[in-house]
Computed example of a mutant assay.
Amino acid sequence: MNDITTTDAARAQLAEYRASIDNIDAALVHMLAERFRCTQAVGVLKAKHDLPPADPAREQQQIARLRQLAHDANLDPDFAEKFLNFIIREVIRHHEAIASGAETRA
């Protein structure tokens, strides 16, 4: 009987963890959507004023900042940098599409 109780307790704890993970995933999606709404506005502003889609100096500052935030949060800074680089590439792709007149959506 003890094994069943232990297994049931483990399943209940697993369900709690998974519910938290699901909530976090939902929050991440909403935060990314808001971030891309903002970067779309940046892309429109850049296109309107003939500014380049990419800003390597800003990107490097953001990477350094995010790596430090990750370190402080006990998250692997390499993972955080890869994640940000993925987002940056997508933002630049959107900005290039906006500048060429081919609006894109996040």
Score class of each variant (00 low, 15 high):
43 G>A: 02
79 F>V: 11
50 D>F: 11
50 D>I: 03
77 P>M: 07
36 F>P: 04
28 L>K: 08
43 G>N: 03
76 D>V: 12
10 A>M: 14
19 A>C: 00
26 A>P: 03
89 R>N: 11
73 A>M: 11
16 E>I: 06
33 A>G: 09
64 A>K: 14
13 Q>I: 10
32 L>I: 08
13 Q>W: 11
4 I>D: 00
43 G>M: 01
84 L>E: 04
19 A>V: 00
73 A>N: 12
64 A>S: 15
86 F>S: 12
40 Q>Y: 05
26 A>E: 09
29 V>H: 04
91 V>G: 05
29 V>E: 11
79 F>M: 06
33 A>M: 09
77 P>H: 13
53 P>K: 00
63 I>Q: 07
67 R>N: 14
98 I>E: 14
36 F>L: 08
90 E>F: 04
36 F>G: 01
71 H>M: 11
24 I>C: 02
99 A>D: 10
38 C>V: 13
78 D>E: 15
48 K>F: 06
10 A>Q: 09
78 D>C: 01
29 V>S: 11
13 Q>G: 08
64 A>H: 11
75 L>A: 08
3 D>Q: 03
42 V>K: 00
75 L>Y: 09
27 A>V: 13
24 I>L: 09
71 H>F: 15
29 V>Q: 10
93 R>I: 07
62 Q>G: 06
5 T>S: 08
13 Q>D: 11
96 E>P: 01
11 R>V: 15
92 I>A: 08
67 R>G: 09
56 P>K: 03
14 L>T: 08
18 R>Y: 00
23 N>C: 00
11 R>F: 13
15 A>T: 10
106 A>L: 11
42 V>C: 01
82 K>I: 09
7 T>W: 04
27 A>W: 05
103 E>F: 12
22 D>K: 05
88 I>N: 07
55 D>M: 03
81 E>T: 03
38 C>A: 12
45 L>T: 08
34 E>H: 08
106 A>I: 14
43 G>F: 01
95 H>E: 10
22 D>C: 00
42 V>D: 09
45 L>R: 04
30 H>A: 12
53 P>W: 02
62 Q>V: 11
4 I>H: 00
84 L>F: 13
4 I>L: 04
76 D>M: 10
82 K>M: 12
8 D>R: 04
2 N>E: 06
28 L>R: 10
48 K>I: 01
47 A>I: 06
59 E>Y: 05
98 I>H: 09
82 K>A: 10
54 A>W: 00
87 I>F: 05
30 H>E: 14
84 L>N: 02
95 H>I: 06
104 T>W: 10
6 T>V: 10
100 S>H: 07
41 A>E: 12
89 R>I: 07
49 H>Y: 13
27 A>P: 01
55 D>T: 05
20 S>E: 02
102 A>Q: 15
38 C>I: 14
65 R>H: 15
49 H>S: 06
83 F>I: 06
90 E>I: 10
39 T>Y: 02
72 D>N: 15
4 I>V: 04
40 Q>A: 07
53 P>M: 05
105 R>A: 15
72 D>H: 10
76 D>P: 04
73 A>L: 11
30 H>Y: 05
